[in-house]
C-alpha cells in the first residue's frame, strides 16, 4: 500500500505515459503494470493539427492522474501549470518539476521549494521532484510535501541510482513516501545498476 496525502494506492509503482509507440501498447503496458497512478504532462494544443487525446485512450476511472509541471523554469510557471491541471476537475495531485539546467534537466531546488510551498497553501497534494539531496528532501517534507520524488540520476539518462548512499539517507529520514524518479532506466537494466525494491522506496 502507498498513501500520499488523502490517497491510498495498492501499487507502489507510478507509471509515466510518454514514449509509447502506440495506444494499444500503452494500454497493455498500463494494464500489466497494475499501477494506480499515471503521470502526464501539460502541453498547448496545436489548434491547426489536433490529434487524438492521450488520456481519452485510457479508462480514467481506473487511475489517479498525476500531472507534472514539466516545462517550468520558475516557481511561478510551475504554479501556473498546476492551477491549469487542477482546473480540469479530475486531479488535485501535482508533481512539481522546475528545471534549472535544461541540458541535464536537473531540478532547480530553490524554485521547486518555492512552488511547493505555494501549492500546498492552495490545497494541492504536492510531490516535488528533487535532486537526491537528503537535506533538500527534509526541507520539502518540513514544508508539508506529501511525498518526495528524488531523482535517481538525470531525467532520461538511464544511469540508474548514481548515489545510493544519499537515497538511503533520504528514505531513512523521511516520514512521507519516497518515490524514486528519473534516470532509473528500463526495467531490464535495473538489477545491474540499482535495487529500488531492496531500498524500500516506492
Amino acid at each position: 500500500m502507498l498513501t500520499i496525502g488523502n490517497y491510498t494506492f495498492t501499487s507502489r509503482l507510478l507509471l509515466g505515459t510518454g514514449k509509447y509507440p502506440n495506444a494499444d501498447i500503452q494500454r497493455e503496458a498500463v494494464k500489466a503494470s497494475e499501477t494506480n497512478v499515471l503521470t502526464f504532462a501539460l502541453s498547448r494544443i496545436d489548434l491547426d493539427n489536433i490529434g487524438p487525446d492521450p488520456i481519452e485512450q485510457l479508462d480514467r476511472n481506473d487511475f489517479t492522474l498525476l500531472p507534472n509541471t514539466a516545462g517550468a523554469k520558475t516557481a511561478e510557471e510551475a504554479v501556473r501549470l498546476a492551477r491549469l491541471a487542477r482546473s480540469s476537475g479530475i486531479c488535485d495531485m501535482i508533481k512539481v518539476e522546475v528545471i534549472g539546467d535544461p541540458p541535464t534537466l536537473l531540478p532547480d531546488p530553490v524554485e521547486t521549494l518555492k512552488a511547493t510551498e505555494i501549492l500546498l497553501a492552495e490545497g494541492f497534494t504536492v510531490l516535488p521532484y528533487l535532486s537526491d539531496d537528503p537535506m533538500l528532501a527534509l526541507r520539502a517534507e518540513q514544508l508539508g510535501a506529501h511525498a518526495i520524488m528524488p531523482g535517481a540520476s538525470p531525467i532520461g539518462s538511464g544511469l540508474g541510482i548514481t548515489n545510493p548512499y544519499n537515497l538511503q539517507l533520504i528514505i531513512e529520514k523521511a516520514n512521507v513516501p519516497v518515490i524514486v524518479d528519473a534516470g532509473v532506466g528500463a526495467h531490464m537494466m535495473r538489477p545491474k545498476r540499482c535495487n529500488t525494491e531492496r531500498m524500500r522506496c516506492c
Binding site: T39, A41, L42, R44, P54, L65, I155
Partner: peptide
C-alpha cells in the same frame, strides 16, 4: 487564452 491538455509525460 491558453488551451492546453494532458499529454504523455513522466
Amino acid at each position: 487564452i491558453e488551451m492546453v491538455r494532458f499529454v504523455g509525460g513522466g
